[in-house]
Design a binder for these strands. Structure first.
Length: 266
DNA sequence: TAGGCCATCTGGTCCT
DNA sequence: AGGACCAGATGGCCTA
């Protein structure tokens, strides 16, 4: 059995370390779970409530920058698979718009038992064992041609799966660098899951902010022009609302629902 | 050298 | 029956 499980379902004695964060000192929070001691998202971590960005919703408004490039991270080792340490852990930087790169899935190789025609980067392997087994066990049940056909199909299926994983790697933000080897399969899946949950979290937080601002906009006299959708500028509207409170009270404290950092007015 | 990751083969199971 | 899917086994490559 593999040593990793995606979900930290066991609240057992030893902490289950996530494979993508294994051996990493300080993974980003969106890679870890929210409040879970184990890294990676816990299955019970509802994105809508207290996700990784819950701190942003309570208090100071900070731009949600999930992928800040940490320059003092360990330098990527050339020729090495994206170190799980840097993948999860600081190796990320936001690359802007990731080209979806969807579609155009190359047709997998046909029933060529050996990658002579396939341009896969992997060398051919596993022939000695397979051929032995083929001659020993396989011939009892099915002919050699049938077995080879099945093998080719399975190979093709796995290649398709790997192609899909490559496409997934291309759209999740991590250090796409030629000097850094690609994410492992498990790291890709876990990273993608965390990324989806993080995006859902951010979206939900944005929705709540919009709802709040639309409630306060009318009370503060902010009337958006016709056709203007306030949803697009929640932070600006909130700032205007705070500024309106300060100016109307001569710089006094705003007695609104904003507590705490009123002294450091923006 | 151990461990992680991967590709491949293989047999079983399920579905169409 | 044939194909898809799955998991176990095996061996190679690479890094710490």
């Amino acid at each position: 059995m593999k040593s990793f499980e995606c979900e930290s379902s066991s609240e057992g004695d030893e902490p289950t370390i996530h494979p993508i964060s294994r051996g990493i000192a300080d993974p980003p929070q969106w890679l870890r779970g929210s409040a879970s001691t184990t890294w990676g998202w816990h299955s019970s971590c509802a994105p809508a409530n207290d996700g990784p960005s819950s701190s942003a919703s309570a208090g100071v408004e900070q731009p949600f920058v999930p992928f800040s490039h940490n320059s003092n991270e360990e330098s990527p080792v050339p020729g090495r698979r994206t170190p799980l340490g840097t993948v999860g852990l600081g190796g990320f930087y936001f690359q802007g718009v990731c080209a979806p790169n969807l579609g155009a899935v190359p047709a997998s190789d046909e029933n060529s038992p050996e990658p002579g025609g396939s341009n896969r980067s992997q060398p051919s392997r596993a022939l000695p064992h397979s051929q032995n087994v083929l001659q020993n066990k396989g011939k009892g049940r099915q002919g050699k041609a049938v077995r080879l056909n099945i093998n080719a199909r399975e190979r093709r299926r796995m290649h398709d799966l790997n192609d899909a994983l490559d496409e997934l790697r291309s759209v999740i933000p991590y250090a796409h660098s030629p000097s850094v080897r690609k994410l492992s399969k498990i790291a890709t899946l876990l990273l993608a899951k965390n990324y989806i949950l993080m995006q859902a979290n951010a979206l939900d937080e944005l929705r709540r902010l919009v709802a709040y601002l639309q409630g306060t906009a009318t009370t503060t006299g902010i009337v958006p022009p016709p056709g203007f959708d306030l949803d697009g500028f929640p932070a600006a509207a909130k700032f205007l609302q705070q500024h309106h409170n300060i100016s109307s009270e001569g710089g006094g404290n705003n007695d609104g629902n904003n507590t705490g950092n009123s002294g450091t007015a923006l």
